[in-house]
Design a protein around this nucleic acid. Structure first.
Lengths: 184, 184
DNA sequence: AGAATAGCTGTCCGATCGGTCAGATCTGAC
DNA sequence: GTCAGATCTGACCGATCGGACAGCTATTCT
């Protein structure tokens, strides 16, 4: 077979993601990942320089998109910012269900992300809460914003099996409600 | 000093909780916990038969109260069940902020809980979603319920520093909104 | 055909981890 | 004082982990 090597690389990534979601980063050994795809541990370390590199390659796309969303929201204000924030977060959540769970579980371990150009990722959580709270620093608004944000992440990471369209709509409307805003 | 031994026992529990929240169960070593309170690893293992026993002693109270809440809700129906569910969850979340985070991070590892009389804990999450969804199996309702539930757990586990009364009120109202219900 | 390169593996290593154990120290009861 | 039991500790052990390395194989290029 011609490009079976590249195939293995992505098989390993998929297996790692699966195992990281199930057992956590620290709860998954290199041997586990290798065994999942039926290759040797040494072969795994041929494709990835070390364990953190797997995590990095897995989370870099999500991280980049979160930072991009964050930057996009910085130009907006008030109601427009809140709605754009929810739309963007719902989109991210639906597209990267498992990755987001892994990302937030292992934020502290993901040194690889910070060693990339991802320093911007650190404060993104707090800034998103700020946006969803409509810029308000009122405790009530911030709790609502944190709940909307947390709920989306947990719903996305959860094993809810339903068609993407319904999930998007349900998450959007529920989040708007949590923030005390009417849909539309 | 008289009962310094009992004091050490609880110092160890507090240190373990702190470290489990920060670095996770697997990311915390027995040596870390012992060092945090300045005693030897062997002394730690004198107070707790093994690492899981620490987790168990830390999570058993929360687990019991979650099962108790679950049982209490089983007798209710409709709107009353939803509101009692939210009240109960808010109460639990406020009282056991950190423990809940640890509980959900390490549900799979917490064999100790299942070895206690806590088998009832397994399905409690799904049942609570069912209650908050008002018994409905509509996908929309279940997403909203999951978001309200997830939001509360994440808000509670988060490091939001605010007075307990405000937090209770904000969480209750936000959760009711998420579920499309009017407060009061 | 032969060289070179990429892909893959078995084997080994140092570090760390959870846990054991025999013994030191301390305490209160008599 | 001394005895018993509780508390605490240093030293040690087997297992596991992340990672290094030298070599095997197959493909591709000249």
């Amino acid at each position: 077979m011609a490009r079976s090597s590249t195939a293995l690389h992505e098989q390993l990534l998929a297996a790692a993601l699966r195992l990281f979601v199930q057992h956590g980063f620290r709860g998954t050994s290199l041997a586990d990942i290798a065994a999942e795809v039926g290759c040797s541990k040494a072969s795994l370390l041929y494709h990835f320089s070390n364990k953190e590199a797997i995590l990095g390659e897995l989370l870099l796309p999500v991280g980049k998109e979160m930072v991009a969303l964050d930057a996009r929201l910085a130009d907006l204000e008030g109601d427009a910012a809140v709605r754009a924030g929810i739309t963007g977060l719902v989109d991210l959540t639906v597209r990267f269900r498992q990755e987001i769970k892994v990302l937030f579980d292992n934020m502290a371990d993901a040194t690889a992300l910070r060693e990339a150009d991802m320093e911007g990722l650190d404060g993104v959580g707090h800034r998103l809460v700020g946006v969803l709270a409509g810029g308000s620093s009122d405790p009530f608004d911030r709790v609502a914003a944190t709940m909307a944000l947390g709920g989306m992440f947990l719903t996305g990471g959860g094993q809810l099996e339903m068609d993407e369209e319904t999930l998007r709509e349900a998450m959007t409307i529920s989040a708007l409600r949590t923030l005390g805003r009417t849909p539309g």
